[in-house]
Simulated assay, not measured.
Amino acid sequence: MLLPLLLAVVPVTTTGAYDEVRLTDDGRTLVLRTIDWETDDGQRTRVTVHWQLLDDGSMLYEYVRQPPATQAVHRRACALQGGSPSGGVSFLAGSGTTHGFGCSSAP
């Protein structure tokens, strides 16, 4: 029997965010956002998150495309919520939004 997954979007406290924009060989526009990612246990880790900029201005986050340090802090943040990183994608949109990520857990 398969257990359904519950997707939770967890807010992140960030400070000191700055961006670098790069164009990939396959024509994608990446926003490399360096942030101090603070988890619920109070630990703060500086990581660079790779967002893909979409035509509508929103940005797409894929866990599997993140650097190892970013994946590690994502795993730690989800574990504190009783879950693990979502295997899907997350989208970021809206003025003033710096970061967001998805966690999944079995009920």
Rank of each mutant, 00 (worst) to 15 (best):
D56S: 05
Q81M: 13
P4C: 04
W37R: 13
G27L: 05
P11V: 14
T45A: 07
V89P: 02
H50D: 09
D56P: 10
A17M: 01
S104F: 10
L5I: 02
S105I: 08
R76A: 12
L92S: 05
L60S: 07
G88I: 02
H74F: 11
D25G: 06
C78Q: 12
R75H: 10
A77S: 15
D26V: 02
A77L: 08
Y63C: 12
R46Y: 04
V47P: 12
G42E: 14
P11K: 13
P85Q: 10
L60I: 00
S58R: 14
D40I: 07
V64C: 04
P67A: 08
E20H: 05
L6D: 15
Y18M: 03
V73W: 02
D56T: 05
Y18E: 07
M1A: 12
S105V: 10
P107Q: 06
V47R: 08
Y61I: 05
V21T: 09
R22V: 06
A77I: 09
Y18L: 04
T48A: 00
G100L: 03
W51P: 02
D55K: 07
H50V: 15
T13E: 15
H50T: 15
H99W: 06
R76W: 06
L6N: 14
G83Q: 12
C103S: 12
D55A: 15
M59Q: 13
G96H: 00
A8E: 15
A69Y: 04
T15F: 13
S104M: 08
S58M: 06
G88E: 04
P4H: 07
T29N: 01
S105R: 14
G83L: 12
L2Q: 10
S86H: 12
A17F: 00
D55N: 12
T97E: 03
D56N: 11
T29G: 00
D36H: 09
C103E: 10
G27V: 04
E62N: 05
Q52G: 01
V73S: 06
R22N: 01
A69M: 10
V89Q: 09
S84Q: 15
R75A: 09
P4D: 09
E62C: 03
D40P: 09
E20Y: 05
G57E: 03
T70E: 11
R65N: 13
T48E: 07
Q43R: 15
V49W: 06
D26M: 02
H74S: 11
G42V: 13
V47C: 11
G82R: 13
P85Y: 11
P11T: 12
W37I: 10
V10G: 00
Q81L: 14
G96V: 00
F101R: 11
D41I: 10
A72R: 07
G57Y: 01
M59N: 05
L60G: 04
S105C: 08
A8G: 09
A72M: 02
P85R: 12
T13V: 13
Y63M: 13
F91W: 09
A106W: 08
S84W: 15
G42D: 14
G83S: 11
V10E: 04
L53M: 08
V21M: 07
L32E: 06
E20I: 08
A77R: 05
D41Y: 08
S105W: 12
G88Y: 00
G16W: 01
L6I: 15
S84T: 15
V64E: 12
A8P: 01
G94Q: 01
G94D: 00
D56H: 06
R28D: 02
W37A: 11
S84H: 14
R75F: 03
M1F: 03
G83V: 14
